[in-house]
Structures are given as structure tokens and as C-alpha cells.
Design a protein around this nucleic acid. Sequence first.
DNA 1: TAGCTTCTTGTCACAGTGACATGAAGAGAT
DNA 2: ATCTCTTCATGTCACTGTGACAAGAAGCTA
Lengths: 242, 242
Amino acid sequence: MPDAFWQPPSILLAVDLVILTLRSSKLHVLLVERGIEPYKGEHALPGGFLNNVDEGILAAAQRELREEANLDASQLHLEQLGAYGDPGRDPRGRIVSVAYLAIAPGLPEPEAGADAAGASWKPVEEIDSGRLELAFDHRWILADGIERARTKLERSSLATAFCNEPFTIAELQQVYEAVWGVELDPRNFYRKVQGVPGFIIPVGAERRTTKGRPARLFRRGQQTVLHPPLSRPNPLTTSEAN
Amino acid sequence: MPDAFWQPPSILLAVDLVILTLRSSKLHVLLVERGIEPYKGEHALPGGFLNNVDEGILAAAQRELREEANLDASQLHLEQLGAYGDPGRDPRGRIVSVAYLAIAPGLPEPEAGADAAGASWKPVEEIDSGRLELAFDHRWILADGIERARTKLERSSLATAFCNEPFTIAELQQVYEAVWGVELDPRNFYRKVQGVPGFIIPVGAERRTTKGRPARLFRRGQQTVLHPPLSRPNPLTTSEAN
DNA sequence: TAGCTTCTTGTCACAGTGACATGAAGAGAT
DNA sequence: ATCTCTTCATGTCACTGTGACAAGAAGCTA
């Protein structure tokens, strides 16, 4: 019960980034090795505190993206996942973190930024199989980020953000397969993707060298909402929600 | 660039609640009249600061739900919308607010809680038509909450949370119509709702008095994920996303 | 009993989908 | 050249889910 003498507690605000990309047909997340306590030496999501009291939260996320991952935030999809603020999530005290999701196209090895002791792409499979542990509650933040990406792939054109332009339909299919963790029929995928108006648009009849028949090249269309949606294959009968 | 002497800024953390319900077939939101500056006398979402540094964010939301709306949080759907922390959103200083969405079945007039000068249900239409202004950035928080509710209605059984049990299919339809802001064909709605296994289950052949033929009564099923989903009628061709 | 209201059950055409066959266009081997 | 292998591209078919209706069923009121 607040009274005249009561003052709200002040806390520290941080941002954490879930940066996903595709490397050799597998979903990877950018992790840094912590250079300071707590959790020194362990893997964690890139992130950090607000620089000063006037810095916006999104601005802080964009700054960390640049500092820790050498990525240009202006080009990337950046979306808030939510606030993570359980008491005790950080041994240093009450720290609330706002997490953001970013999607990056395939990139060369990350260069460690200023702060990060070492940055590297890790397959997400290693984390949620439990083989690789993350600092703080980052495992759950990552899980939420992946889940968000999964559902967004259905109704938004987010998948193209994983691809460098121009891309082939097969490459786009690999994005869906990697993120969803399923196999898709190339023929049905081809039909559906082409059927969504404004999703991908063919760039003049170009082609690229592989083994078999050359593939047509596409670039992102202007449409960001997919209709009809690309529905994820039935993950059996879940009864989970919320 | 943080150095050895740099200290992260500390901020104040608040929670805000978007509590939606249905009253006379229209979507309403619970608002309080602010008793103190800033924005004294204006309407705002219920909410407040963390009580102490050890209080969880969700716990704070549940406490405010009880204090300001006299609602029992344990019965309600409560879901985080996200963090709102633009510098300047609160003239008192840097305050970051974590917003939650709650859905309540039709209720009698709200009783003003301890803190709130006055609490009342307002039609959401009055806010997003601009006729009623809200304090802080609460207009946008509300808009996000409504949008979240809209999309969740498609794939989750959230709609039943608006209904007192037992309910009729027509009542459930009114929920969808009010939240989506559309009219639905009762016959198709009937077929679809019944076709989702575990969504609603008939409570013994009871009935209720209205004008025409008595309606069968139902209660919530155990299934929280709707398959197939109840898809929202085409809102024309939007090209918005994110 | 007729008329009105609301709930319930059908019907029909069509879009979207999964499963699968088949054709087209290149590279490499013989 | 021709064959084979690979990958890309197009087509077919049955089935589900959907929107747009018609028509029947069960109560109330006059």
C-alpha cells in the first residue's frame, strides 16, 4: 500500500538480442562469450544496459546490434519479444531486460565487436537439446524468439529476410524447413509461394549454377502480409496455447 | 562506451493493464480516472509501479488487477503485451511500463478499488475514434492489446473467456463480432465452431429463454488451440505487417 | 392458427492443400 | 552424340474447409 512516503523501487534496464540466421541449412543464433561476471566465460545473447537515461529501448537494441554483432540495424527486421524481469534472473540485482528479435541473411563469420569477448553463430539445436547452456534466462528468451519467428513465417514475408537477394525458391524453402524443423514438398511449396501475390517477384529470367536445371531468381515483393498464408504442417495435436 | 566508472542508468518500472470485456455486444476496456498528476482527471489504463524491488512483474500486474479492478487474477487470462519505454512518455522521468492483456467475461459495474479515483468500462470505439483521449501512450497500448486479442481469437479459445458459463453459440458469436468488428453468418459460425474438436462442449440438453427457439448451452472445452482456426474475414487487402 | 423470431441442419460451388506423376533443362560420363 | 543423374518446374486428383445461400424446427405472441 503506497503512502505519502513510499517511493517506487528503481531497477536497471537491459536489452537482449535474439539474432537468427541460416548457415548451411540450419538455424543459428548469434551468441557472445561473456567477458565479465556473472556467468563469465559462458555463452549469452548479445545485449547490454541502456547507455543513459535518455536512450530509447529500441535505440539501445540497435546500438548493441551494431556494437556486438557489427550489423547495420537500419537494414534488419527488429521486433520486440517482450520484457523478462523475474526477480533473481540476474544475481547482480533487479534487472529487467527487453528482448528483441532480429533476422539476418546468411553472413560470413561474425567479427567480435567492441564489447563482446567473442561472438559466434551457434546452431539453435545445440541449445534446446541442452548440450549448450546459456547464461541468465536466455534459454527461454531464445525459445520465445524462435517460436515468434516460426509463427511469423506463416503470415508474413519474414522468411525473405533470411535470404540474400536474389534468391531461388529452393533457398526460400530451406528457410522454412530450417525454422520450422520440417521437410516440405518442393512442388507444393513452389505452387504456394508463387500463388501469394506480391510475396516474391521474379527478377528477369536469370539463373544460377548448381548441379541440375538452373533455377529462376527472385527478389522480395512489396507485400508483407501473406495471403493465403503458408501454413505450417500439423505438429500433431498440440493442446498447448496461451 | 562504458568504462570502469560508468554506471547504467536506473529507471522506474510500471505495469499497465488492458482489461477487455463485452457489454451489450460492444467491446469495452476498463479505465480509471487519474487522481494525481500528471494527467490528473484524465482517463488511463489501470496500472502502477512495482511495489518493491522483489516483486515480480506478473505479480505486480495481478496485484493491480485486484487493487484497481477488484478482479481475481487467478481466474483470468493474463498475457504480456510488451514493454513501452520511450523516453518522454511520462513527464515524471524515465518510466518503462510492461503492459498486460486480460480478458474478463461480462461483469457488473466495476467498483472503484483502493487507488483508483474512479473505474469504469468504456467502449473501445470511443478511444480509437479519438472522442476519448487517454493519458500517456495508453492509446497505443490499448490498440496493441486489441490487435493481440483479435489475432488470438482466430487460433485460440480465448473467446470463451469473454463468456460466462454456460453460454450459447450466439453469445460466442457476438464476442467474435464485437472484437473483430464484423458481422458473421450465424449458420456458418455454428458449423465452424462445432467442427473444432474440444472447443466448446454441450452441457446436457439445457436451454435458455429468449424470443425464438431455445438455444443449446455449452461450456468451455479443454482444447486451447483451435484447429481448424476461425479465420477472420478478409479485411480487404492490407499490406501492413510487423 | 398464423405470424414472427431465433436456433439448427443442409446444400452447393469453389478455393486451398497434400500426395504424387511427369516434363524440362542443365552437367558429367561413356 | 547419347545416356544418366540431378534439380527445377508444371500438372493432376481427391479431399477439406469456406462463404453464400435455402429450408426446417421450436419457441413466443396475437
